[in-house]
Write a protein that binds this DNA or RNA. Structure first.
Lengths: 215, 215
DNA sequence: TCGCATCCTGACCGTATGGTCAATACGAAG
DNA sequence: CTTCGTATTGACCATACGGTCAGGATGCGA
């Protein structure tokens, strides 16, 4: 029924806007609350207050707390996977890994809440995204490991175990989001400035690129 | 009243054993449950079941859930600080950082639950250990930064920002505990073997030591 | 055996939370 | 103005949870 579909889409143009806007509002609030309180510590009431909506309205858009949480985790996972593009099409480790570190540090700065939700989800045994780990993430990882191995074979870097290099990249970049509070405390209670973020990115990139013998 | 104190200590020798044993039992169960479910998701009932004690008994030894949680976090913090000794008295970065990485990887393997509880606590804004961060951790960090800076001045390693090097050490080593489930999933669902732990430690050590120009 | 401190625990309570629902408001189309 | 699908919301409910408490068990010293 292309007709009714089109009509419905046209007719509900305004309504669709409301739906999208409210869903976005709720998802942003949820991301923050889940990150700061954890799944168990987060309450629908708190998310509702932060989104400026009555609690019952949340259940109109998301049937359960778990469904809302699931969407938040999925959103993060997609953002996170997008950074993969920085890795691809690079001639060697200096460009590829350099770009990847920069992209991931950028995500840590722009989506600290999302990174924390992801970290907590994995720490709890990945109850809702286990299948993603086993399919998408595993495939992604194997693909990049192959790329790194090729660089090694081509003599563009030292013979490092690609797996542990990837873990190191993830750990180091995500640390600036997940442990942002600790870093801030050790920075005299101040959030990192633009300059400090640049220095952090630079330090990480330098140590790793030199560490794998690409410089 | 040293007399009564001594008498009491002697008389309750057996009782003290019971107390210590039960507290340890509860703390171990709590560490596991807090790590797997988070503070909000953990229930006293679940901890009690895992410890093999009735719930009311938990409240006999620990007045509140928060008090129990606080003890768990403090325990981890102490274990974690002990790894500092590996850092001290080292002639240079190869010995010092090498030993530190080995010690921290060992902690990640032996106390994965503790590491996760610590990570979650920091991610939530360190509600119960903020003062530790501002005092003990800050002092510890500044001390090690000075050591690293000295090594740099002595030409034993490249001029890396000591702060970001420390963050990198923490991030990388703790990743093997905090994201252990993800690592396991990417390892065909198998926990890392002795050999794989050794390889991981070796990879991390190699990349970092080469990355800071100490090799 | 008795007294006493420690330890144990089933039953209970107040509260907070996720979720439901019926009633209502809204707004576009005809 | 009427109709109808969508969006809104206050009131409500069942449940689960942290915490309490009174009564009892245990075991050691005198």
């Amino acid at each position: 029924m292309p007709d009714t579909a089109r009509i419905s889409r046209i007719r509900s143009g305004r309504r669709t806007d409301i739906r999208q806007q409210n869903e976005r509002l709720i998802l942003e609030a949820a991301e923050r609350v889940f990150a700061e309180a954890g799944f168990g510590g987060a309450t629908m009431q708190l998310i509702a207050d932060m989104a400026g909506l009555p609690k019952a309205n949340l259940h109109y858009y998301f049937p359960t707390k778990e469904a809302l949480y699931r969407r938040v985790v999925q959103n993060i996972f997609e953002i996170w996977l997008d950074a993969a593009s920085s890795f691809d099409g690079a001639a060697g480790p200096v460009e590829g890994i350099g770009a990847y570190v920069r992209a991931k540090m950028d995500i840590s700065r722009r989506h600290p809440h999302g990174s924390k939700v992801w970290a907590a989800e994995v720490m709890h045994g990945a109850p809702v995204i286990q299948d993603y780990l086993e399919t998408t993430l595993r495939a992604w990882t194997e693909g990049r490991m192959a790329v790194i191995q090729r660089w090694i074979d081509e003599g563009k870097m030292a013979p490092i175990d690609p797996r542990h290099l990837l873990y190191m990249l993830w750990a180091t970049t995500q640390h600036y989001a997940d442990f942002g509070h600790q870093i801030e405390t050790l920075n005299a209670g101040e959030a990192l400035s633009d300059r400090q973020w640049r220095e952090a990115t630079e330090s990480v990139t330098q140590i790793i690129l030199r560490g794998i013998g690409a410089i």
